[in-house]
């Protein structure tokens, strides 16, 4: 049994290195249904990891996009949204964002403004989908216009985690957008991150090869 588990883990790890991995974050007020949407999409197949220290829940999911295997990390807030803002690490290297409000509660729609603002501070370019959840509570809302998404030219979905309307489509589209973003990322911050990462590598190799030159003696500042 242990061997089988170990083998499976090794296989998982080997697979993970071969496939594309993307990170998709969920944003939105308390009780808008973020976790319920994820659970509806993943059904029983999900294995959430509660990272309570970081007030965050992680869901791993394997998808295929245009024949390519994709490992998706869905990040869910687990109550952290109550600080009205998320820790910077939540946004770090995210490739797409699903931003949810509750069609029954105006305040959750109004708060999209501040969620969106914070998202753009950390991730100026990643795809972001605006989601109107709980349409099962009142189908009439689907006959009304919500201008927030249009204002920022974002895709907009009416969904219901309860009856399932558009939930699978939402997540599949989010995964596609995340993969496309990762593969053709023009995000300024991503480029900076890449530069920094390769810079670190270069520096280390330089340090190894000719230590003296790359680490000049420290001199007191000249007056």
């Amino acid at each position: 049994m242990a061997d089988a588990a170990a083998a499976e883990q090794a296989r998982d790890e080997a697979a993970a290195s071969a496939e594309e991995t993307v990170k998709i974050i969920c944003l939105g007020d308390s009780a808008v249904g973020k976790s319920k949407l994820l659970e509806r999409f993943l059904l029983d197949g999900f294995r959430p990891q509660q990272l309570s220290t970081f007030a965050l829940t992680l869901y791993k999911y394997r998808a295929r996009v245009d024949g390519q295997a994709v490992l998706v990390d869905f990040w869910d807030t687990a109550g952290q949204e109550r600080f009205q803002s998320m820790h910077a690490s939540y946004y770090h290297k995210a490739h797409a964002c699903i931003m949810v409000f509750d069609v029954q509660r105006k305040v959750t729609y109004k708060n999209l403004n501040s969620w969106y603002k914070e998202l753009r501070e950390f991730r100026p370019e990643i795809p972001c989908i605006v989601v109107a959840n709980k349409i099962d509570a009142d189908m009439k809302v689907t006959q009304k216009s919500f201008n927030f998404a249009r204002k920022f030219s974002l895709p907009f979905y009416f969904v219901s985690a309860a009856d399932g309307t558009n939930v699978v489509k939402l997540f599949n589209d989010a995964i596609k957008l995340a993969v496309a973003y990762k593969q053709n990322s023009g995000d300024f911050m991503d480029e900076v991150m890449r530069e920094l990462e390769s810079f670190d590598l270069q520096k280390t190799t330089e340090n190894l090869s000719d230590k003296e030159e790359s680490c000049p003696e420290e001199k007191p500042p000249s007056a």
Binding site: Q143, K144, N147, G164
Partner: peptide
């Protein structure tokens, strides 16, 4: 599992008022 319903958001719709 997968239920897709289109709800067109065109300009003529009444505003949600929010």
């Amino acid at each position: 599992y997968n239920i897709e319903v289109e709800f067109p958001q065109d300009e003529q719709l009444e505003s949600c008022g929010w």
